[in-house]
Design a binder for these strands. Structure first.
Lengths: 202, 202, 202, 202
DNA sequence: AATGAATGAGGCTTCATTCAT
DNA sequence: TATGAATGAAGCCTCATTCAT
């Protein structure tokens, strides 16, 4: 196999792991399958990582980072409502674009929870925190109370997670489009009632 | 070990499986652990079931049945909006009451999807169908078009699944209460806009 | 199940065992399969026999007895040559008529040898002894030396066993007919040369 | 454990399997016993073979090849009669030399028959075909009709199989010598009558 | 007499991991 | 750096056998 930098190799394994986890579940993601998916030798996995758990921790970090990025693409000029809806839409669209990521993210939440109880919460928390930060930025002009930010972030989590489960289960793009519209619609009406009906009336 | 009828033993194994799946994940739910949880000998699992997959199929049926029941407890006098909100609330409350069930349900969806692709959809579909039927019954007096029923059911699925993921991850009752309120609020506003504000005003 | 005499029940199990051994081999002949073949409950096997080995010992005795019978049907008026050929033919024909018996007999020889070393020999010995006795009877008028009787019996064993292996393997009746003719022909020529051409000419 | 190439290890396993099959029967030839006999770790069997059946298929090929070799050692100057008798003698002598092989060959025929019906026949057929080819070569100078070749090969099969059963059962070398003489004698007289010729008259 | 329920031992196979080169 | 070979633990499942009714 070609000589690649260790860093690149590790990234290959992380990407491979995401695919394998999506296809076979977290427990079906064996070192052998991951190595195969990465086009590497089985022993190479333990050459790059001390253990399988170490690799998964890296995958975990990768997923957390992804959520961060998804929340940070908000237009600085956007209103709070616009920002909130965009975050939700971006997440759902990324799920549709990369179903492997969607499945793996849910699998990893469960895996992490089973491992340490706390570390499952961590992923969820960090994703929430990413959303909160973006929302605060968007509301910079007309500050809202922290509880409102918190609730909006929670709503995003609820709707995006609910969407993910349905999309993962059906794997059907048309179904996903419909679910996205419903989720967006749920969010829109709620935001309007929550933040002042102006946006809905308009 | 006490001599119990095979039928009763099977029920014991199903209950035990739900607990073990919740604790260790679907792949961590080994026959040994399930037997232990059920207080039975390992070989007993294969006395009652031809294979582990058979047992899981039974667990699957049990979960599907539970969703049916949850959707069928609607007051016959309720309006469509009331019925819809009650179904969502009943599901979420049952999740809180029985976190093992919530986790297992999600695990089984993934398991079924990985097994047969179609049978993952089946659970989701049957749960949806249960909700649709209940909604149609509630709307008997003032019939609504099928698409509306369908969308409401989809919204229930999205919100209840999203709630489940959060609740499962945190395992914190206070957090769950808050999430329930948010989900309910999302649903309420949306229903009002969807079905005419009368129901909300009223 | 119907109440049957213990003796009859045991015979049922023996017959069932012969069929199951033929189909699944001696090690594939599980108590469960034998019980099923006999139309009896699994526990019934151990109600009639202390152990599986006990049952097999009974099957063994049954097979030995069958060989005895096959050698004893010689016409008292027959010459030695006629008697010898008839014994061989009877054995081969019974093999063709009951392939299950043929397979089981070979399986049991191997089983017995693996069990006790000596008891494998026993079946073979008793079958040989049966043939020898019949041959001696046939040669009553013109006594032959014991070694000749012994060799003839050995030849019968060799030819009938060789036939059995081929017949079992092919399971084809036409093939069996051809093999029988060859075995008979081998035996005929050899007997003629061995016992003097008189018998052949006659 | 010594690091050996997988190819060599596979050969070790094949040899070990022959011994274990001879000692414990085809169904008593457990992976554990075979590994132990080969001086290898249990899991090593599955490192070299996908399954136990794969290993047995290799053993099967090994046995088939052996029969081929046994039929191909005929002196090119030999007459048909000489060639035929040499093939039979070589087979019987190899059986005596390697009782494990003799037992395993018979066990494998039964195993193969139970597995696929056809593949049991295959071994027998290939062994027959090896004999036929050798006989045709020997009869190159004075060609005989195909049916005669066929019958001679069948006679060899019948006699060698019959010898094998007896030898396996008794495991006694003196007995085997006697049986070999009888088989040879049966064959000799039959060949003489079959192919004409003085050898019997003389 | 008959049978459903129960169990310890052992079968094949897969896994994460380590070792030697 | 890279990889073929090796292994103990644990997975699912089946078996002969026993127990309680």
């Amino acid at each position: 196999m070609a000589r690649i930098s260790a860093a690149q190799r590790r990234q290959d394994f992380v990407n491979a792991a995401v695919e394998v986890i999506a296809k076979h579940g977290i427990d079906g993601a064996t070192t052998r399958r991951i190595a195969e998916q990465a086009g590497a030798n089985l022993a190479m996995v333990h050459y790059c990582y001390d253990s399988k758990e170490d690799l998964f921790a890296d995958v975990y970090k990768f997923v957390v980072g992804k959520f961060r990025v998804l929340s940070s693409k908000v237009d600085p000029e956007a209103t709070l409502t616009e920002a909130a809806r965009k975050i939700l839409r971006d997440i759902m669209e990324y799920y549709v674009e990369s179903p492997s990521f969607a499945i793996s993210a849910l699998e990893l939440i469960n895996w992490a929870r089973r491992q340490h109880e706390d570390s499952g919460i961590e992923l969820y928390d960090r994703a929430l925190e990413g959303a909160r930060t973006a929302l605060r930025d968007a509301a910079a002009d007309s500050p809202v109370d922290e509880e409102t930010v918190d609730e909006i972030a929670s709503a995003i989590a609820c709707l995006s997670d609910g969407f993910a489960v349905g999309w993962i289960t059906y794997g059907d793009r048309a179904f996903a489009e419909k679910q996205m519209r419903i989720a967006d619609s749920l969010f829109e009406n709620w935001l309007a009632a929550r933040l002042g009906s102006a946006s809905v009336a308009g």
